[in-house]
Design a protein around this nucleic acid. Sequence first.
DNA 1: AATGAATGAGACTTCATTCAT
DNA 2: TATGAATGAAGTCTCATTCAT
Lengths: 216, 216, 216, 216
Amino acid sequence: MSEHSPQETLSRREREKRARQQDILNAARELFAAKGFRETTLDEIAQKAEFGKGTLYNYFASKEDIFHALIDQLLEDSIVMARQCASSDGDARAKLTRYARSNMEFIRTNGELFHAIVEELHRGRKSEAARLQDIIGRSRTVANIIGAVLQTEMDAGTVRKGEPADYVTMLDDMIRGLASRQILLHGTLSPDELDRQAGLIISILLDGITVRHSKG
Amino acid sequence: MSEHSPQETLSRREREKRARQQDILNAARELFAAKGFRETTLDEIAQKAEFGKGTLYNYFASKEDIFHALIDQLLEDSIVMARQCASSDGDARAKLTRYARSNMEFIRTNGELFHAIVEELHRGRKSEAARLQDIIGRSRTVANIIGAVLQTEMDAGTVRKGEPADYVTMLDDMIRGLASRQILLHGTLSPDELDRQAGLIISILLDGITVRHSKG
Amino acid sequence: MSEHSPQETLSRREREKRARQQDILNAARELFAAKGFRETTLDEIAQKAEFGKGTLYNYFASKEDIFHALIDQLLEDSIVMARQCASSDGDARAKLTRYARSNMEFIRTNGELFHAIVEELHRGRKSEAARLQDIIGRSRTVANIIGAVLQTEMDAGTVRKGEPADYVTMLDDMIRGLASRQILLHGTLSPDELDRQAGLIISILLDGITVRHSKG
Amino acid sequence: MSEHSPQETLSRREREKRARQQDILNAARELFAAKGFRETTLDEIAQKAEFGKGTLYNYFASKEDIFHALIDQLLEDSIVMARQCASSDGDARAKLTRYARSNMEFIRTNGELFHAIVEELHRGRKSEAARLQDIIGRSRTVANIIGAVLQTEMDAGTVRKGEPADYVTMLDDMIRGLASRQILLHGTLSPDELDRQAGLIISILLDGITVRHSKG
DNA sequence: AATGAATGAGACTTCATTCAT
DNA sequence: TATGAATGAAGTCTCATTCAT
């Protein structure tokens, strides 16, 4: 898990700079999540980060720049999370359940920001093309990581043929919808509830809800 | 299907007023859908509706008021749509497939507004409590209508026991996710593609993706 | 002199709009003249024009737009002035003296704005090319009008051959320098002083300062 | 030409301080010339001078202070230049032509800064009175130096009576106007063109443009 | 002496809402 | 009832200056 950065040792200056950047990002993340990108003002970010307004501009070129930095972090984190689940022990059902659970946890933590991102992407922007492609590309990376788990099962004949990516996106849709709804309605998710929901989702994906009279 | 309004007969004045309100709503719907709530200005709405800017305030108390009126309409429409599918011919699979298809169509038409609504709801607002409860309540109405289809199957033992509402929301999540993604990536959905996707979603919900060796 | 505008009659609406635009331009002209473009704030313009700050944007798209409108007016006025002098009675000396005098008067009235314009042009801007060419073109129009007076004399052999435009620009340089300096040092120019200075400038241009022992 | 500074010997500390001050001034000169006073930031000056931003404040009290120091240098230089021309060989025409040429060269080199200075002076500032008087006084010094050349000719009866300062300022106006225009339109001035223009200006000043039938 | 991170006043611009006509 | 000119609060961003290291 130790992500060796190209230069293991940074100057004190550089380290402090990064730390303060992260302070700003953390403040922004909370606010963007709570109020959305447009509704969050720089004054608020500055205040929450305990900096002067102008100081932010020593670390980020614009409000959008802060937002993009957050997107990067989020996508990076989600890729790491997917990799962990895909390489964890157990069969496909175990891995997918773990993924569903981790993802719901992930959404509980970052979901609001995630929502803000989707929202912002949804709008036309100048930087649209390049940035959108980047995000789509990285999302696909996640889909491929989990899709590989399904592909293995398909090769073994235990999962019906299909486009793994389709299945993964539907899995993601269910996860996201469920997590968002639970948070919206109940504020949060208890660990037990998390487990139950994750199991339910995977059960639907793998088994469906129709009762089969097997082994007649 | 004729929705009898509480007062069958309205004065000419009242009828004209409603008509003009609807003109404004139609203009606003297109703009909110295309650019989002915040990014749409009253000037634009006024221009598209071919009214003076001040005139809007004779019909709606504020920009937000227009937005809320649109939400009402959208929810009303979705309830109608759900009822139609639930009462259509065929077995549960047919009804659900029809629902998936109609819903995707519905999202194709209103999806951007739908997105704008979700977005707006997601944020804390003054009117939060009351409005949120109203929306949740009406969403539940939809869930119950489709849930009843599943309940019938459960009673007949052909669908495994569970909370129908859970199943419906997951169905909705898959529908919404798929539709949104298709629109975002490909711009629109062809009728054929609509059918294929609706079938896939229902197939996952009912059958799952695991291969069963039925031992005929 | 009556410049018939394409439409002799404008709607009351349009007339009032123009009047208010002119109010804003007048306020801006004074301020730009006194403090320069960059140093003048929109708040000041709004206050002097007795409008709310936002109101300015109903009449001009930006601060620069106001500036450009002023340039247009100034150039238009100077062309009119040059035409009047060139078509006035008397010989070339009389016309040129009149031009010098009028121009000094013109600079007394508009010189500060003129300076602000030159200043602003001097700096690189996005709109540089197009706008600069426009201004240069219109300046040339003035130079050509007065140059034609000199050309007539050249054709008659009473003025030595040369590029009329060169002579005119030098004349302009002297006029502008003198007027600017007088205003800077003494605040204004009395009519008598105006006459004396105009005569001096023309005398230098036409006769030079060397004493000639004519008719030996 | 050796300008003896009041104190022939300065401490090493003092000498180094002056050297660094000059480094800063050189950087500022280029930037002010290219972009104007307002548009140049202290960051840019610091970077070009290869100092930290805060360091500048050890050498100058403010951004304006730097500007004023540059004005001082420029005026000092122009006085030196004028003295050289006035004391050069040849008759008045030769000296004046040399002055015109040198001055155009001077403007080519320093013109943008010159322009920035005029611009800045033109505006009302706190330091107005004292500083303005200083600059005017030093400009007069230049005018007097060149004016003395004309005075000699007047005394000899070869130049018509008048205020030498008036003639010099008009000469300066023509020089400045011509040089500025050439730079603005063509970017620079070739040596040949410089000579031609200088000759033209002096020819106008001394001879005027009227053809005289000298009746030899 | 040298540094550059921190600051906040102040600039331009947008836009929902009001109100006189 | 219909209008759109007027408004000013609020938003993002810049930059000269200060000050702790």
